[in-house]
Computed example of a mutant assay.
Amino acid sequence: MIDSRASLRRYLAEDLAAHGLTRWRTRYRLTRRNVYFQRLLRKSEYWANVRTDPVGRAVFVWYAVRTKLLGERLGYTVPRNVFGPGLSIAHTGLLCVNSGARVGARCRIHQGVSLGNGADGRYPVIGDDVFIGPNAVVLGVAIGDRVEVRAGAVVIRDVPEGAHVAGVPAKVIDKRDEQRISGTQST
């Protein structure tokens, strides 16, 4: 969570690095809208968490409105204080995140992803260095670090760290199955 100006700078720098960029440029407001959205989201988080004086509240409202309007235009429903540093939203398109979800550092998310609460009322808790492919659905489960959720997977059970999951409902795929899918042979 962003709790100081230094942590805001760190989050912004790690978000840019996750997109392969070294520094912010004004033209990204038009050419890289998803990066611009993330920048607005982080600034909104900072003003909501740190500055509670009247001026801070006014600036927060300004950033919150701008984030909401751009999010609607891009198809994002992303609440504040859910994602850790190094977030990479890969494409524009539907992205729905429940406000109770918690996502770790260096997570890459593609279009069509939904992170929602499960039938038992639990919220998704996602570890660090996680890749979530297009049109994946994660419902109220814990996902470990370094996990790959493949395209179209529906994750309804907890996933251990380092696993690759795919299918409806999602199942862990071991290395042998992964090699068979990609057409490579191990020696």
Rank of each mutant, 00 (worst) to 15 (best):
D15W: 00
I132H: 03
G93S: 04
V154I: 09
K43V: 02
A119S: 14
C96Y: 14
N98G: 03
V125C: 01
W47K: 03
C96A: 11
G167N: 12
N117E: 10
V149A: 09
V149P: 10
L41N: 12
I181M: 06
S186C: 09
W62C: 14
N135W: 08
G140L: 12
L74Y: 11
N34Q: 14
H110Y: 13
N49G: 04
E72F: 08
N135Y: 15
K68D: 06
R146T: 05
L41M: 14
S7C: 06
V138K: 08
F60W: 15
D128S: 01
A101I: 15
V155A: 03
G118M: 07
V61I: 11
N34S: 12
G121S: 04
Y36Q: 07
L70K: 03
R180F: 13
K43I: 03
R33V: 13
R146G: 00
R122C: 05
L115F: 10
N117W: 06
R51A: 06
G118H: 07
R176S: 13
Q179V: 14
V113I: 11
P79F: 02
A166N: 11
R9W: 04
W47F: 15
R157V: 05
R122P: 04
L41K: 10
V82G: 00
R9Y: 10
S186W: 14
V59G: 01
A48P: 03
R66L: 11
V155N: 01
A170W: 02
P85G: 01
V165W: 02
V154E: 05
P54F: 07
A151R: 10
A151D: 05
T22H: 07
G100A: 10
I143E: 11
G144S: 02
A170M: 02
H110L: 15
G86E: 01
R10V: 10
G127Q: 03
L87S: 02
T92R: 08
R10P: 00
C96G: 05
S182V: 15
N135F: 14
P169I: 00
I2H: 00
R122N: 12
G127S: 07
A105P: 03
G56A: 12
P160T: 04
G93D: 03
V159R: 09
G100F: 06
T184N: 09
W62Y: 15
L8E: 08
C107K: 01
R57E: 05
